[in-house]
Structures are given as C-alpha cells and as structure tokens.
C-alpha cells in the first residue's frame, strides 16, 4: 500500500502555490519601479540602451538579429516591438513595456527588451561604446 495524501491536502497546497504565483505575477507586471532605461539584448548581448525619460517623441528604429529584424518603437517612458519578421509575432502582441519588470521577448530572434534602473549617484553621465 503506497503512502497517499487526501484530496484536500493537495488542493490546499496547490491553491496556495497558485495564489503565490498569481500574486507575484501581478506585482511584477503592474508595479512601476525606478526602471527607466530600456536595455535591448540579442543573444544575451546588450546592443542598445535607451533612457526612456529622455525620449520626447515617438520614434522607431530597427534591430537586426541573427534570426531577422525587429522594429522597435519608443515613446516617453515606454518601448515596444512594433514590427517583426519572426514567425509568431508574440513580441509585437506584447505591446508597450512601461515600468513593469517583465521583459518583452522575441524568442525566435533571441531578442529581449527589459527595463533596468536608471542610474544611481555613482552611475556615469553617459556610456561610450
């Protein structure tokens, strides 16, 4: 006879785990933080960083990746992928990233756009490279 637990035990355990995840998801999605610099990485390498607080008008540019091209659009405080030649277009559907901790990701192109905090007192005034 194998050792088993009651249905109620499993229900309670998994419900608790679910609530924890759902809560964390909401927190990561909604909470605006001090993250104002958009960091674009391709294949894990930083290809561009944009201080979204310095953006004054909506503008677009392209990012070339080994898999194809993503068109990225920024506006004051926000960034999104507006066009892409990837198969699923999930990156475009994710819409605007504005302060949340959950990055925009285009898995076929290995492109990730995440927000990082915009500098503390020790940060340089600009970065060369």
């Amino acid at each position: 006879m194998k050792r088993t637990f009651s249905n109620r035990f499993w229900a309670a355990l998994l419900a608790a785990a679910f609530l924890l995840c759902a809560g964390a998801a909401l927190l990561l999605w909604r909470t605006p933080g001090a993250r104002t610099v958009a960091r674009i990485t391709v294949d894990g390498r930083v290809v561009r960083e944009i201080d979204l607080t310095a953006v004054t008008a909506e503008a677009s540019f392209t990012v070339q990746t080994p898999g194809g091209v993503n068109t990225v659009t920024v506006r004051p405080g926000g960034i999104c992928v507006s066009e892409a030649d990837c198969p699923d277009h999930v990156c475009v559907k994710q819409g605007w990233l504005e302060g949340g901790a959950v990055p925009i990701v285009c898995l076929p192109h290995r492109l990730v756009i995440s927000l990082v905090s915009g500098g503390d007192g020790d940060a340089p005034d600009a970065v060369s490279g």
């Binding site: 894990g44 990701v105 898995l107 290995r110 492109l111 990730v112």
Partner: peptide, 10 residues
C-alpha cells in the same frame, strides 16, 4: 537561449 536572466520575471 537568450542569455537573459531577466526572463525569470515570466
């Protein structure tokens, strides 16, 4: 694949 730890936010 993406080399980005930040995806753990998902």
């Amino acid at each position: 694949v993406t080399g980005t730890i930040g995806l753990l936010a998902y």
